[in-house]
Amino acid sequence: MRRLVTDTLIIAERNLLRLPRAPELLIGFTIQPIMFVLLFRYVFGGAIQTPGYSYVDYLIPGIIVQNTAFGGFATALGLNEDVRKGLIDRFRSLPMSRAAVLGGRTLSDIATNTLSITILLITGVIIGFSFQTSFPEAIAGVGLLLLFGYSFSWFLAFIGLLAKSSETVNSIGFIAVFPLTFISSAFVPVESMPAGLRAFAEVNPFTIIVDAIRHLWLGAPAGNNVWGSIVWSLVIIAVFAPLAVARYRRAAGR
């Protein structure tokens, strides 16, 4: 058990060490989300009606949730590369904890997500976002985001191990994750969507987590959203962590 903890931390440290040296990934975490915030706020913002909130207040929780989900792509792309380049073979020939490679990978996503959440919140505040709730609630929101991001890392770990190339990882991300984040309450109120889409958006876990963050940051009605988000995150971990571990064993055992 001690071995699992230390090895996980060593792998996480390795992932964070290499981050500043792979600038394309760092740009993905920092510049790109800022660009999306500005585009939505200033290009679409004026046309989207969000009763009860200014669009910037409405937007920031949504776009941060989307960005947190995408944070796990570091795991997907990183694992994919490690398998292809034989680094997984090296790890598996070492007397280290079997679970540490996946554990360390997903753990380092928490650090990168903390960074991108901070950057987006600062950007948000600069363009007019303001918390309507207490400090502990705001922090609870960040914690919930990190939990959700962590669960999504396990889903993306599975995708990264499944895919044959990094291009495949990217297209799965864009085809599966992008629409899922858009057909939710992240950017527009679900009431504005056509009936079928709206029905889907209302049960979409992204809607639940976005509404939970709006509750914790803006004081929106709580509903079951906070608990719902926690349950969804735990379910995603419970489903995809074993799948990713099984896939890791197979991918490494080619």
Binding site: R14, R21, K85, L87, D89
Partner: peptide, 10 residues
């Protein structure tokens, strides 16, 4: 191995 298994970014 035949594919030098080192981390390129380290």
């Amino acid at each position: 191995g035949q594919y030098a298994a080192v981390d390129e970014n380290l």
